[in-house]
Amino acid sequence: MTTDTITTPATTTGPRTPPELRRHRPSVRTRVFRVLRQALMIAVVVVALYPILWMIVSSLRPDGHIFGNPSLVPNTFEVSNYTSGWNALGAPFSTYLLNSALVVAGAIVGNLISCSMAAYGFARLRFRFQRPAFVVMLLMIMIPIHVVIVPQYVIWAQAGLINTVWPLIVPKFLATDGFFVFLMIQFIRGLPKELDEAARIDGAGHGRIFCQILLPLMTPALATTAIFTFIWTWNDFFSQLIYLTDPNLYTVPVALRSFVDAQSQSSYGAMFAMSVVSVLPLVVAFGVGQKYLVRGIATTGGK
């Protein structure tokens, strides 16, 4: 490449390059390096996404053509995989999607209400036993589900609620996801206290301060909570496997797993098709909530 007098477009340098470097066109070496780096990154993206792309392409292939075929070129569109997969289990796949949607919706509403209320309590109120309560809340973030699952199961069994969605939803209304309580506490602590005090002088009680002043300002934290609850609940397998044993109540992960056990070698196309269907809502949620997702991971280290 020859050097010329046209100024370098600002886009070739990152936003954080100091201004004095922007005046010079990057050297040939630098530019070659940049092109190579982009090429390498594209290659890594292809490798990383290869399994997912292969799954999508395979879901559109007739059964005999799936295996041993690493190609990503969609040369067939075997839509029948989707229709046969949809009806391959005891109930149409829509049943499982609806069951999952119900659990996810309940979990999101529950977490938003209960965790934000608890966070307000911890961040803005002064009460007796505040410190021990806070320690218990932190403990709830850390303990593995496996150590409480047996007694929890016994509680739900005695209440006759195994094979209902309640064991999956009720805990969310009781703010048991300490992680989100903590996330929102940190967020509220970042909001100026003068807002509350001004409202209090105007005669507002805690209910109004929380609902009308803090909640609207907490939108980013609420959005992060909603999207993580969506992803984690949609993917949750362990507790759904334990609490839902009636095939009509299966959620998507449990149904998909029973699909694997039930299917013979010949219906892999259908299995791929339903796998694609089952991750589609995640991809949509990812697209919609990406901003909050990235911010959420960066601040909290969520999965």
Binding site: S114, M117, V136, L139, V147, I155, L174, G205
Partner: peptide, 27 residues
């Protein structure tokens, strides 16, 4: 603000006692 705390932290308290601390001791 003990009374207000009981309202705002009520759900959390029930969850903590019934679904976490209780089961922890039970297990």
């Amino acid at each position: 603000d003990d009374k207000a705390a009981l309202v705002f932290l009520g759900p959390w308290l029930i969850g903590a006692v019934v679904l976490v601390v209780g089961p922890l001791l039970a297990s």
